[in-house]
Every structure is written in structure tokens, then in C-alpha cells.
Design a protein around this nucleic acid. Structure first.
Lengths: 176, 176
DNA sequence: GGTGAAAGGTCATTAAG
DNA sequence: CTTAATGACCTTTCACC
């Protein structure tokens, strides 16, 4: 018996599609460390057959675990040294958020979430300088439906975004 | 004369390393859209020589604009459907943050920022369920030096993380 | 497992700042 | 004069059947 509930209807996750094993995790870790490796080279380093690696990769992509291999761009290297998190209250409007659509039009807005709590939206923005941040925030405030914003500047990022520890941890939890 | 200040010592950015031109932007956009493209294919689609694409890519990586080509992993596809932003107050300790180091040990903590405002740290965490989020937050609270936390759950993400609009926007601002 | 096709490197030439 | 783009050549390596 695994660690699943005995009452599977209480467990909303798709049982067979969420699982990765240790080999998957090692493959992802390897490709993260050296993304330009080919399938053959991966199979050598992992000590498995090349077909296995190819099948695992295809499966990971098909399941949506690996969504792509796009180039990771550093906004800071482009001169956008300032990162801020902006929470905002908006006029609640029925239907699919026109506010988010407008926010998506601002290049400096890197992501938008709807959130619990006092505010309605949280978005991550970048800017070239603090003064430039004011310009970006002005654009946000100008979006129709935005009532109020609150900005928090990220001074430092001791832990940059990463998922590798999570990936490595999943197989240790057994079949879910 | 470009748009730089006439007093360059007032401008802290490295003048020659932050610039990407239109070709760079198109290359990044192309690779983002179809990451599995080879250098040769890119050169065909962009209408430039293969060596040019190779040189541009090398330069982008060398300048830190492109930090890697790692596989993009979706925590949701691994069963981590809950995303939350946790702000926290900590005991201010001199020297490099031991709190951040401990937080980095928690796989579900995807990133950590030091921030302005009432709180000291902001981190993004994921969990399998809301109940599982409690477990993760308990681990955060258990970190020595953490005084208080405040959690905000991301209900939806109308704009997922993206940098492409930013990249496309940079060349339009001219030489920096 | 074999084969066609890229990747990756170097070079000389040419163009543009 | 410096920097970059180009096309040509080569060898190794990989992806696909």
C-alpha cells in the first residue's frame, strides 16, 4: 500500500500522470546543469540505454512536466536591475479579467497572479532604476479598473528561482 | 548623441554590455517559440549566416543575458498545484543571512527575496494542497530567526512568467 | 547498428562603424 | 583601424530510421 488515501475520490490529483521517478529527476537535473547535451550523451552519463532517455524525455514533455527548453533570459543583464512586487486592488468585474489583459500589455510586468487577502492582484515587475519603476507603476495605475497599488521592492535575491530541489524531492515521496 | 546622461559617472550601468539589438531579440524570440531549433535552422529563419547566429548566441551567454537553456519544469504538473507568497519578519542578524540559507533547504521554497516594507523576506512556495501548504509553512516558521509569517495564496495566474515582451522592447529604446 | 545531417571550430574575405 | 558578418572547409557527434 502506498501513501494514497484509501478513498481515492478524496484525492483530486491524476494518479498516473503526476509521477516521476528517480531517473526522471536525474535526467532533469542533468539537463539543467548541461542543457546542450544530446540524448546520447545523457544516456552515457546516466548509465542507461539511449532509447530509455528518449522515451523518458518524450514522456516528461507529453505529461507537461517539462514545458520547454527555452533560453532563460536575465532581465538584470538587460539593464533591468530593479525588481518589485506590486499588489493592487481592482474594481471587481465579472467575466475574464480585462485588468490582467491590460497588465499583460506592459512589457515590464513579468507575471500576474490573482491572490487571497486584502489585495486582488500581485504582479512582478522590473525596471531599469527606481525612477523607472515609478514610470512602470504609473502605467499600472493608469489601467482601467485599478484602484490602488502597493509596491514592494526586492533588494536582494538570496535564493533565485529554482525547481531542482523540488524535482529531486518528488521521487522520495513514492508513488502519489 | 544618444540618450545617455552627459555625466556618465552618474550612470552606473555598464554601457557596452547591456545592449542587445533587434537581431538578438528576434533570435531569443525564435528560440523561445521553438527551443529545439538548431543553430542552422535559426540562421535560415533569421536570414543570416550560421556563424552569425552562433556568435550572437555565444555573446548573449557570455554577457549573461541568456543564463541557460535548462528544461522548464512545471511544479503543477508534478502535483504542486498550490502556489503561495509568504512574507516574513526575521530577527535581524549581521552577516550573510543564515535564514535564507535555511529556507533554501526547503524544496518547496522556490525563491527568496529580501524586501522593503513591513516584512523582511518574501518567498514563493508551492505545495500539493492547502493542507500541504500548512506543512511547508510550519517548516518555514521552524527556521531559526523567523519571527512571523504571512501567507498569500495565488488563486490563478492570468499572466505566467514571461520575459519575451521585455526582450522585444529593449532594442526599441535605442543604444544605452 | 548504419547513415545522412547538423553542430562546432577555424579561416580568409568583405563590409561597416 | 576595429568590429562584425559571411561563406567555405573540416571533423566530430548526434538524431533518425
Amino acid at each position: 500500500m502506498n501513501n494514497l488515501s484509501s478513498f481515492p475520490w478524496q484525492n483530486p490529483v491524476n494518479l498516473y500522470s503526476m509521477t516521476i521517478d528517480d531517473l526522471d529527476a536525474r535526467l532533469i537535473a542533468l539537463l539543467t546543469a548541461e542543457p546542450r547535451l544530446g540524448v546520447l550523451e545523457c544516456s552515457r552519463r546516466l548509465g542507461v540505454a539511449r532509447g530509455t532517455v528518449q522515451a523518458r524525455l518524450d514522456r516528461l514533455v507529453a505529461r507537461g512536466v517539462v514545458t520547454g527548453f527555452g533560453p532563460d533570459v536575465s532581465p538584470a543583464a538587460l539593464g533591468y536591475d530593479v525588481t518589485a512586487f506590486v499588489t493592487m486592488e481592482i474594481r471587481q468585474i465579472a467575466g475574464h479579467d480585462p485588468v490582467a489583459d491590460r497588465l499583460a500589455r506592459i512589457p515590464e510586468v513579468l507575471e500576474v497572479h490573482t491572490i487571497t487577502g486584502d489585495s486582488d492582484l500581485l504582479c512582478r515587475v522590473v525596471a531599469r532604476t527606481n525612477a523607472d519603476l515609478q514610470r512602470v507603476i504609473d502605467q499600472i495605475v493608469d489601467v482601467h479598473g485599478v484602484l490602488r497599488t502597493n509596491s514592494i521592492i526586492a533588494l536582494d535575491t538570496p535564493v533565485p528561482y529554482r525547481v531542482l530541489p523540488l524535482v529531486a524531492d518528488v521521487p522520495r515521496h513514492g508513488v502519489r
